[in-house]
Every structure is written in C-alpha cells, then in structure tokens.
C-alpha cells in the first residue's frame, strides 16, 4: 500500500518500520540454540548411560547398590557400586579438606597481601598448574610422591593410630591418602584462581568501611572480603569437587584398587568409580561395559546431587546479596 522503503523515512513523515529479520533476530536465535544445546547434550548422555546400563543391571546376580565387589566375567556376573561410590566420595572429600584451606590462603595472599609483581607471577604459575594433564599428576604421584606418603602414613599410624582413619598394620603406600593428596593438588588451582577473582571484586567501599571502623587487615578480610565472596567460594569449591569426583586416570594410578568400605586412609587400598572404569574398561566384554556404564550413571547422579545442593546453599541467603 504505502512506500516499501524501510530505511529512509521522508522528512517529517512516518517513522521507519521495524525490521523483522535483522541481526537482533539472528542473535536471539543463536543464543537460544546454544542454550538448547546444553539440554540436548544432557538428555543424550543420560539416555546413553541408561540404555547401555539396563541390560547389564538386569543380569546382575547381586544388589547393585549394596554389593561391594565387581565381577563381570561370563561365569560370575555380580557387581555392586557400594564400595566404589564410597571410595569416590571419601577420596574427593579428603582432597577438598586438604585443598580448600590452602587454596583460600593462596587466593587471599594473591588478592590482598602480595605485592602486585609477585601476585601476577604466582597467579600465572597457579594457572600453569591447572594446565598439567592428569596423567602427569598420576605418574608423578605414583613414582615420586608414593615414598614420602608412605613415610607420612607410617608416622600417622604410629602416633595417631588410635584414630580409625590412621589405624591398621599396613602395608602403606598406594592408599586413599596418596590419591587424595594428588587430587588435592589437582583441584587446588581451580579453587585458587576462582576465589582470587571473587576476592579481588570485593567493592573497595566495603573494605574501606571495615578499615575505617578500626579493623586490622585480617578483620577487614573477615568482615568484608569473605562474606562478600561466600557464594563465589562455594562455586569454586563445587567446581573443585566436580573435578575430584570425576578424576579418573590419576586416581587409577595412585589408589590401591580394593573393594571394601573403610575409612582407613593410610593402608594400601581405596578405589573410585571413575578409576574402576579406567582400570576395567579395556578387558571388559559387552556385559562388563554395560556394568561399568551403570557405575558411570551413578557418578553422574552423585555429581548432579552435589551441584544442586551447592546451588541451594548459594541461593538460600540471596536476600543478602
């Protein structure tokens, strides 16, 4: 009917028509597509895990959730997740207990204590540590860390053997302690650099508010930096935990590969879902693979629960952010 030009309105006449297929629209569809892809990938992985796992679970002669051992040969089809899941959670927990205080300490040093030059260099080294492949950590732990940890284990056993954690009669060496120490070093960089970012974002106004009240530096950090960074710290720890739970090869090389539920950290032993998959996958037949994939499904679920719990913690006090 009227003029079809959309670019130049006549002087003083109509406003330009809205563009229906401009860059705006394309960009909106691109972002929507990227967002949808996440959902598709998650569903695809879950479907794969369930489809592969169900046949093996159907032929399992033992209770998958309570049985501790793992036999998938043609003669002996009994396997259970109990010891593996326990080992996964135990080694990841110990690793975080070791790593988080150190990581937060380094992060605070870098963000609030170190001179700029040292802070930049050290920050770079931390990022470099994050780039070391896990197989290298595994080899290093197995070949070099094993002896010091053996000595440490013997010492802990001698002086604190009354604690079930450090009890037993040995042998020491490839144990939950060794695996957890290697894991701790592996998750250290990610927790450090994320919390450093968060600490550096603390508003100067809040830091000055604390200082002007007569806070010492540490008191200032406690009243303004740490509370402000709390959700960020939780997110950083969560990412570290995610990595620790899923870590495969380094644990396959440093744990003692036993199938028991025990809190003993120093005796040879320990296992994890991912390490077990790495150890067994090569020689497994179709049934064995199905069984391992079933264990992968459990790991997937554990990680999901951990993530959701942490999110719930972060959002619980949202009123205060």
């Amino acid at each position: 009917m009227t003029s079809s030009t959309t670019t130049k309105p006549a002087a003083g006449a109509m406003l330009p028509r809205r563009r229906r297929f401009g860059a705006e629209t394309i960009f909106r569809w691109l972002t929507t597509g990227a967002g949808t892809a996440v959902l598709v990938i998650i569903v695809a992985i879950a479907t794969f895990l369930i489809a592969e796992a169900v046949p093996a679970l159907r032929d399992n002669k033992e209770n998958f959730f309570t049985y501790k051992e793992w036999f998938t040969g043609p003669a002996d089809r009994k396997f259970g997740i109990a010891a593996l899941a326990f080992g996964t959670v135990l080694s990841a927990t110990i690793a975080l207990l070791l790593a988080v205080p150190v990581a937060l300490g380094i992060a605070l040093f870098l963000s609030h204590y170190a001179p700029r030059r040292i802070s930049t260099t050290l920050g770079f080294l931390i990022d470099l540590l994050a780039a070391v492949p896990s197989i290298v950590f595994g080899l290093w732990g197995r070949d070099y860390l094993v002896d010091p940890v053996k000595d440490l284990s013997a010492w802990l056993n001698e002086y604190m053997g009354w604690l079930p954690l450090f009890g037993g009669d040995g042998p020491f060496g490839k144990s939950v302690l060794l695996g957890s120490i290697v894991l701790a070093i592996m998750v250290l960089p990610i927790i450090t650099s994320l919390s450093r970012e968060v600490f550096m974002q603390t508003p100067k106004a809040n830091e000055e508010a604390a200082l002007a009240l007569g806070a010492t530096k540490w008191e200032m950090i406690r009243t303004s930096v740490l509370p402000y960074g709390r959700p960020g710290i939780i997110a950083a720890v969560l990412l570290g935990l995610g990595r620790a739970l899923g870590e495969t090869i380094a644990l396959a090389m440093t744990l003692g590969t036993t199938f028991v539920i025990s809190f003993n950290l120093v005796e040879t032993g320990g296992n994890s879902i991912a390490a077990n998959i790495a150890n067994k996958f090569g020689e497994a037949d179709d049934f064995g693979r199905g069984a391992l994939i079933a264990s992968g499904l459990v790991l997937f679920t554990i990680t999901l629960i951990v993530n959701m719990t942490a999110r719930a913690i972060v959002y619980r006090r949202r009123e205060f952010r």
Binding site: A205, N206, E208, T223, S224
Partner: peptide
C-alpha cells in the same frame, strides 16, 4: 570515625 560519599553498609549483613 568516617562516613563515606556513597552509603556502604556491609551487603551480607
């Protein structure tokens, strides 16, 4: 004591 240009209550408290 000091009062600043922009109100700066501790946000998490």
């Amino acid at each position: 004591g000091m009062v600043f240009q922009r109100p700066n209550p501790f946000p998490t408290m």
